[in-house]
Amino acid sequence: MLRKYLILIVFCCSAVVTQAQGLQISLTGMVTFNETQLVISEAGEDIEGTITSNSGVQLSIESNNYWDMKNEKWRIYVHKSNVEWNDGIKLEVKREGNGENTDNKGGTNIHDGTSYAEISDTPNYFFRGMGLIANIPLAFQLKDLSLTMGANDFETDVVFTIYDD
């Protein structure tokens, strides 16, 4: 009889411990680029300048357990997973603002990521912060486009990963 209660207690404690995954990322919006930003002087030459996104994405740090995670430190890493991509094209991302504190008390605690950084195939550090923050605006840009790449649709998936400190 005691053995059954002991097993029940161990099972209940392990169920509480397995709830370690508390932070999560949500994204809203879609990245689009305006082709009218292209400056082409002659066929076969590289395209001058960069193309920046004209619509953005907002990233939010959320948690199912608000009280345990509202002061949690975290880091965001970013990488891309190519579907159909030309390695000569550089995709870059930056954080354009600090977002909003979800409890509406004071400012946000967020650092780094305010200048464009290239998104590679391996995860790289993007920015860090503390607490639950909503609507962090992100901007993207394309660089090193060339007419020699030909007319094609290029597609890649951008992956954001959150780690708690």
Results as ranks from 00 to 15, higher is better:
S55L: 10
T32C: 10
V57Q: 03
F33E: 00
E45F: 15
I47L: 02
I40F: 05
Q21S: 11
N34Q: 07
G49E: 05
I47N: 01
S60M: 01
A20Q: 15
L38V: 13
S60D: 05
I51T: 03
S55N: 06
F33Y: 04
S60E: 01
E45C: 15
S55D: 12
L38W: 07
I51P: 01
T52Y: 01
N34E: 12
I51V: 12
E35W: 11
G22L: 11
S60I: 04
E48S: 09
E45T: 14
N54G: 07
G29Q: 03
F33S: 02
N54K: 06
L23K: 07
G44N: 09
L23G: 00
T52Q: 02
N34S: 08
E48H: 14
S26L: 08
E48G: 05
G22R: 05
T32Q: 08
G44R: 10
D46K: 14
A43P: 11
T18Y: 13
G44Y: 07
T32E: 10
V57D: 00
V39T: 14
T50F: 00
S53K: 06
S53W: 09
M30W: 11
F33G: 03
D46Q: 13
A43W: 04
Q21F: 14
L38T: 14
L59G: 00
Q21H: 15
Q19M: 12
D46L: 14
L38N: 06
I25V: 06
Q21L: 09
Q19W: 13
G29V: 12
G49K: 03
V31M: 09
E42R: 15
L27T: 14
F33A: 03
E45N: 15
N34D: 12
S55P: 08
V31I: 08
D46E: 10
E48N: 12
I51S: 00
I51N: 02
Q37H: 09
A43C: 05
S53A: 04
I40A: 05
T50H: 03
L38D: 13
